[in-house]
Amino acid sequence: MAQAWRCSGLRWSADGPVLAWDGGRRSALTWGKRVAFGVVEGGVRTCVGARGHACPLGAAVPGRSTGARCEECSRLDRAHSVAADTLADDPRPYRVYLAWFGPGMTKVGITAVRRGGARLLEQGAVCFTWLGSGPLMAARRTEELLRAALRVPDRIPYAAKRAARAALPATRGERAAEIAGLHARAVALSGWPESLAPAPFEPVDHVEVFGLAGAPAAVGEVRELVAGGVVSGELVAAAGPDLHLLTGRGSVVLDTRLLAGWGLVPAAGRESAVPVKALKERPAAQDGLF
């Protein structure tokens, strides 16, 4: 039997998307590359642990879970995250950003300055701009200000992002229009923390980086992996944690977070055979701007 590998996720490098594996191995992904692997027969998906520590229980986790962690490990992982507001004394500088995923679909967020734009690639942002930079709590207060004053959310479901990619505006200008207007309104607000330095509007577009220009619209998404299942297809695009694979069913999206916790083996020459569901239509636009 072939050696089983465990995937630790999709990473974005300067050269594009890369699949990372436990043990440090990495697989560069290029458009047109055949992606094919099988799930170990009789295998069980197990918790990936948290903060570099293995799950003490080796707990089984559901196939549809994108976190691949049991309840206890999920709690530990979140307790040490910026999103949980438990790192108020973090001395590193942070940036506030506006990220656009499709028409009527913009969010505000923060990321450490040292990470550059990596966080936006990981989220699958089609277009983004910086709003300002400063200490963590100043960035967090600015994020809250925009949520309250401009009704900009700080989270957008991945399912909505996937659906939006099927019908993006054709030009960079069209894709940047919404965040241009929001940027102007945001910097004009009163109540900005004095320690946060505003940034000029400089949109960054990821359509080419993600390979979405000219890629076939996705018609379905992998619901979950199963023991003995196979994923196989030609890589035509990637955004955030998602791979867009051209299969016999058309272009299908694979959320690579579903890979974690499974033992995977090569499956060259085999057809894709995992549960796939139709890609959800975009939800109706919210009232007002969002």
Results as ranks from 00 to 15, higher is better:
Val61Lys: 07
Ser65Lys: 01
Gly67Phe: 12
Gly67Gln: 13
Ala68Lys: 02
Glu72Asn: 06
Asp77Tyr: 06
Arg78Thr: 05
Arg78Cys: 00
Ala79Asp: 12
Ala79His: 08
His80Met: 02
Val82Met: 11
Ala84Gln: 06
Ala84Pro: 00
Leu87His: 09
Ala88Thr: 13
Asp90Tyr: 11
Asp90Cys: 13
Pro91Ile: 07
Tyr94Trp: 15
Val96Asp: 03
Ala99Cys: 08
Trp100Phe: 06
Phe101Tyr: 15
Phe101Pro: 05
Gly102Asn: 06
Pro103Phe: 00
Gly104Lys: 02
Gly104Gln: 03
Val108Thr: 14
Arg114Ala: 15
Arg115Leu: 05
Ala118Ile: 02
Arg119Asp: 13
Leu120Pro: 08
Leu120Gln: 14
Leu121His: 12
Glu122Lys: 01
Glu122Asn: 01
Glu122Gly: 01
Glu122Tyr: 01
Phe128His: 13
Thr129Glu: 11
Leu131Met: 11
Leu131Gln: 03
Ser133Gly: 14
Ser133Arg: 14
Gly134Gln: 12
Leu136Glu: 03
Ala138Cys: 08
Arg140Glu: 08
Glu144His: 10
Leu145Pro: 13
Arg147Met: 15
Arg151Gly: 01
Asp154Arg: 12
Pro157Cys: 04
Arg162Met: 12
Arg162Gln: 13
Ala164Val: 13
Ala164Met: 08
Ala166Lys: 09
Leu168Glu: 07
Pro169Cys: 06
Ala170Met: 00
Thr171His: 06
Gly173Arg: 14
Glu174Phe: 00
Arg175Ser: 05
Arg175Glu: 01
Gly181Met: 09
Leu182Met: 07
